[in-house]
Design a protein around this nucleic acid. Structure first.
Lengths: 255, 255
DNA sequence: CGGGACCTTGACGGAATTCAAACCGGGTGG
DNA sequence: CCACCCGGTTTGAATTCCGTCAAGGTCCCG
């Protein structure tokens, strides 16, 4: 069973120029040429600000947009007709979302905000131009798609083969790694804004059993669950329990 | 638990020109310009013929190659140190494999032949050139990556949320759909060359329970299991059991 | 004070794993 | 030709894991 999404409409505005994009400050991206940055600037259609709990797009829609996450947490998910929900992956600053819908026509999954989010919006129609005039940026998009594929491979391994305890440990370690890489824990305390229902729907476990599993991780001093969120106490222990293998880093090429 | 892969070395030869590629005969691809076809021809390094059971590449290797499947069945998988194996997806004629390794450096999964296979081999180093000189082909590669992502999303939904029976029905229906789309059942009887161990490792179920589940599908007249392989008796019933949603078709753009 | 969202716990039943054994067909070597 | 083995399938029984049901708890907010 799943939480029912609160579908309040997100608001739109337009502001920051790509030249001053806060994401590029982090030093986690490759160097772009001036020409590239200005092209992306022209490609950009505006910004979208959405609050926690709102839905950016839903399964079955034909959204003509492509987004880059500027700030906040979100998650992609799919549902079965009877309401069972599977969370596919989490999105963080720097992630590109909506590519599937853009290329393949219909959106086959939904995107919901876990926290307040700001996204940068691009026009689908001009994607072809991007490939023509800036092949390196096209290459970067492919890179991002390949990386998402790799993450999904790992999740599939997790849900298919790991035990409940391993799975939970893996997910929490994964989120911790990704969030700290994009600098989300720079100043704030290291808390991830998930509920246990989110964890359950990601791992394919019931809420009750998820709760018992998380408790076990807490008993082993690997995490601490705070109301609606958790923090990692011992990442090494967590990765050990998870039979952690990887998730290699590597420079991210694209905004 | 998993079957132990038989790692006989695949053999290499080079033959067919792209202009006469059997895949393009099928009419399932978009029309390529002469220029595109000749570029791909130059991009091509040779062909790789491998027999059933052999491994094309393994997790952790740095294969500099990219492949297109010309004929045969294969599957991508990942393993945990203790040997648990998760099959991630199946590859069929027209599929592109090895992109992750090419773009991201290290290969994070392995590829094994389910039947004898022929693959077309491309050089990784020239991928940048491809994006520069033929943006449309670069776009096509991104398209393929997005499509793989979509399939993985669906598998994740399946393994995470569907019951054993639904999951098995879904997998078999999925394989049937894909195989018939690429014309694998044109002349041959509609038999897919999987063992029950493959099914088990794909669904995240034990071999014993997989067997009992498949028996149930057979009792319901949805499939017939033949030694090392199955055929679908009633695809509609199977999709009904699976709570089948989709897998939209759409033209495939790239060789 | 009451309600809602989220976390927590116990009891019970059902689903899936594990262990164990047997069967079947094909291939191989004595 | 037969005995044997091997990979794959089948079945039963015992056990463990996980889901469902039910109830209670906490904190925050109106």
């Amino acid at each position: 069973m799943s939480a029912s999404p609160d579908t309040s409409a997100p608001s739109r505005t337009r502001k920051i120029a790509c030249e001053a994009c806060p994401l590029r400050e982090s030093g986690r991206f490759r160097d772009f040429t001036e020409q590239e940055v200005s092209f992306v600037s022209g490609f950009k259609r505006g910004e979208l600000t959405a609050e926690a709990g709102s839905t950016i797009f839903v399964e079955g829609s034909h959204s003509p947009h492509l987004y880059t996450v500027i700030s906040g947490w979100g998650f992609r998910y799919k549902t079965l007709e009877d309401g069972r929900r599977q969370i596919l992956n989490y999105v963080l600053p720097g992630d590109l979302v909506g590519l599937q819908g853009t290329l393949l026509g219909e959106m086959e999954h939904s995107l919901e905000c876990l926290s307040d989010m700001v996204l940068c919006m691009f026009e689908r129609d001009r994607l072809g131009d991007l490939y023509k005039s800036n092949p390196a940026l096209g290459f970067d998009i492919t890179w991002l798609a390949a990386r998402e594929e790799q993450i999904l491979d790992e999740h599939l391994l997790s849900v298919g083969q790991r035990s409940a305890l391993e799975r939970a440990a893996y997910l929490l370690a994964y989120l911790h790694d990704r969030a700290s890489r994009v600098g989300l824990f720079k100043d704030a305390p290291e808390i991830s804004p998930l509920t246990q229902q989110h964890v359950a729907d990601t791992l394919g476990l019931s809420l009750v059993h998820t709760n018992k599993t998380l408790r076990k991780l807490q008993d082993r001093q690997a995490i601490r669950w705070k109301e609606a969120g958790f923090r990692i106490s011992d990442i090494a222990r967590l990765k050990d329990i998870a039979r952690w293998d990887g998730l290699p880093d590597g420079m991210r090429p694209f905004i």
